[in-house]
């Protein structure tokens, strides 16, 4: 599977209701060792929402709030975004992701802390 098979796929809950599309795929670094990289990146869950721009701009992370105008608009657009734990995913096929849970049981994604330091 490729990441792009997930991104943009429609997400449907247990009752067949659409929750929007996969906007991002959250990874956690606790998988099998990958050479010099160390522990591999494993899928932890999906970020689902109706508007594409919101997560792409990065305003869903901690401490990113400026400029006010843009941050405000991005927040409003990402209001309905939800986090789906990978364990709730039943099936991925034909650009469609089916869930085992109901849409209203899902929570908003927790903002990630940004990676430290620009210069390395």
């Amino acid at each position: 599977m490729r990441l792009s098979d997930l991104l943009g796929a429609e997400v449907v809950d247990r009752d067949g209701r659409s929750l929007g599309r996969v906007r991002d795929v959250r990874l956690v670094q606790d998988g099998p060792i990958q050479g010099t990289f160390g522990a591999g990146l494993r899928i932890e869950g999906l970020v689902v929402g109706r508007v594409a721009v919101a997560s792409r701009l990065g305003y869903d992370r901690e401490g990113v709030e400026a400029p006010w105008l843009v941050a405000r608009i991005a927040r409003v657009l990402s209001r309905d975004s939800r986090h789906v734990p990978w364990s709730d995913v039943v099936r991925v096929a034909d650009r469609r992701v089916e869930l085992a849970c109901r849409g209203d049981e899902l929570l908003a994604p927790t903002p990630l802390r940004h990676l430290p330091g620009a210069e390395s």
Partner: peptide
């Protein structure tokens, strides 16, 4: 590499 357990959004 960063410490294990770090989370990031792939896209």
């Amino acid at each position: 590499s960063a410490p294990a357990g770090r989370m990031l959004d792939a896209a």
